[in-house]
Design a protein around this nucleic acid. Structure first.
Length: 499
RNA sequence: GGGCCCCUAGCUCAGUCGGUAGAGCAACGGACUUUUAAUCCGUGGGUCGUCGGUUCGAGCCCGACGGGGCCCA
């Protein structure tokens, strides 16, 4: 019988809990029952008895369940704190005259911190005024075989990420963050829906990746015996939707990029993309601001968001707009434009002691200079507008300024949160741009885009003028909370532990 | 890719000069009918990330590897 075998090389505390489980089963009780009595949640009980005076017996019987997170055993009156999933806590009391000596002793010896229990009894307040359930009986709902970490010392970063389930039990902020994300998602969908955008789901497994410049993850289909890619962006499929008459579409889903991971990059990340027929970069910028402001309001009830360290960030009102090349010129102290030559830009970059990749074209170098001198200083929300054409193959030319495209990047707290375009809709120009990209790919640029013939065929049927945007959901949560990306994702990728 | 730091009990961490392992909480035994990280008395718990080297002797020094973090690019 496997139940009788208790590995004696286990750490002491794990071994003792397994022995307790065996003892419970051996005397015919259940350690993992199929159901336990539960008449209300702890939250409901707290709400119903708000403001109850000290030392009151209500006469109301309830059965309540929760995880034991503190245990204070005394001789004839024991206290325990129960916690349920959202963090609501309630005290349970076990007195000798109510439960009798056998059950009291059993409570003391069987139940450990971390166990899930159901307690049946009367709702009272203690002599200190603590709302409590005074037990007549209790039942184990699930025996915990592992001790919880200390409540009052912060878990190490690594343990939080590797054992998020424990993190959620012990750390209020983890619970807050876990619930923040669905609130934001709901708000985003509500914002789109109220503007008559419809949500679509486009392929994540793709025959050909596209829509962004990034290295993809590759996989293999046995059924088709062909190489497939995890998508790096949904853009080209959403544009196909617009061709077909889904004039306002959005998708919120995962993208995958086979690149470095750090405090603001995860190999898989949630992304919003939206396309609005008969809109442009201005209409889509307004949409983006509304999405973010409405999400902030949904979470905090205000456009001023409070970060986890107490700092406040005001996302209200309209946001600053500035031209990319004006910001660069300001930053380097001389006039830089889309016409500035690659050699000139190199001279500036060298003055800034930047390392220059010889593969960079002028536009790319200009953007790198911007990142070097300006990006980190853009604390308040700002739309940076007008990007070089040679780094933006899916964007239409700027209607006024040659060499630029109608693309903006939204910066908040110094990092890029979203990007938006007046989309390129001329299929002939689009083909030229993708042919250029394919040539870069042939020369070994692993991030270059492919020549997607089906996408071009779709465009050739006629795409309405449109604006489009993309925004990282994880980054939106970072902007709303000030947290690192691994705190906004419940289960970020971590390398396996050694056995 | 380069540099720096960390890995010790279930958890969070100390560990001096290289001399054979410590604390708090948690656990175990006992006392306690109003506790709030209960308190008091007592006890146990360690492959010091892994492998190798130096040494009479390594948690500590050296090297490699694994895992994690920070900074730079």
């Amino acid at each position: 019988m496997s139940e009788e075998i208790i590995e004696d090389d286990l750490p002491e505390q794990l071994r003792i809990r397994r022995e307790k489980r065996s003892a419970i089963l051996a005397r015919g009780d259940e350690a993992y029952p199929v159901a336990v009595a539960r008449t209300a949640s702890l939250k409901e009980i707290r709400a119903r008895h708000l403001g109850l005076a000290i030392d009151v017996a209500t006469g109301i019987q309830e059965s309540l369940s929760g995880r034991v997170i503190f245990k204070r055993d005394t001789g004839k009156l024991c206290f325990a704190t129960l916690r349920e999933g959202d963090g609501t806590e309630l005290q349970a009391m076990f007195s000798l005259d109510k439960v009798g000596p056998d059950l009291l002793n059993q409570w003391k010896s069987d139940i450990d911190i971390g166990d899930l229990v159901s307690v049946t009894g009367e709702i009272i307040t203690s002599k200190r005024g603590e709302l409590s359930i005074l037990a007549d009986s209790y039942q184990l709902a699930a025996k915990s075989l592992r001790p919880l970490p200390v409540e009052h010392k912060p878990l190490s970063e690594e343990t939080r990420v590797r054992m998020r389930y424990v993190d959620l039990i012990v750390r209020p902020e983890a619970r807050f963050n876990a619930r923040l994300r669905p609130q934001v998602m709901q708000s985003l969908r509500q914002s789109f829906s109220s503007r008559e955008f419809i949500e679509v789901e486009t392929p994540m497994l793709q025959v050909m990746h596209g829509g962004a410049t990034a290295r993809p993850f590759k996989t293999h289909s046995n059924a088709y015996d062909m190489e497939l890619f995890l998508r790096i962006a949904p853009e080209l499929f959403l544009k196909r939707c617009v061709v077909g008459g889904l004039e306002r579409v959005f998708e919120i889903n995962r993208n995958f990029r086979n690149e470095g991971a750090d405090s603001s990059h995860s190999p898989e990340f949630a992304m919003i993309e939206a396309y609005q027929a008969y809109g442009d970069w201005d209409s889509i910028a307004l949409l983006t601001r509304n999405l973010i402001q409405e999400a902030a309001f949904a979470v905090y009830g205000s456009h001023v968001v409070t970060h986890h360290d107490g700092r406040e960030l005001d996302l209200g009102g309209t946001w600053r707009e500035a031209n990319l090349f004006d910001l660069i010129s300001e930053g380097v102290g001389e006039v830089v434009s889309a016409q500035t030559s690659l050699d000139e830009l190199k001279r500036i970059a060298l003055k800034l002691e930047m390392k220059i990749d010889p593969k960079w074209v002028a536009g790319k170098l200009a953007e790198e200079i911007f990142e070097q001198v300006t990006e980190g200083q853009l604390k308040d929300p700002i739309f940076v507008r007008g990007y070089p054409v040679d780094t933006s193959p899916l964007v239409r030319a700027h209607r006024l300024t040659p060499g630029l495209v109608e693309k903006w990047d939204l910066y908040i707290e110094g990092f890029e949160l979203a990007t938006g375009y007046s989309e390129l809709i001329d299929p002939v120009i689009q083909r030229d741009r993708l042919v250029e990209q394919a040539a870069l790919g042939a020369k070994g640029d692993v991030e270059a885009m492919n020549l997607d013939e089906d996408f071009l065929r779709a465009m050739e049927f006629g795409v309405p003028p449109m604006g489009g945007m993309g925004m990282g959901v994880d980054r939106l949560l970072m902007a709303l909370t000030g947290l690192g990306i691994r705190e906004t994702i419940l289960f970020p990728l971590v390398k396996p532990e050694e056995q």
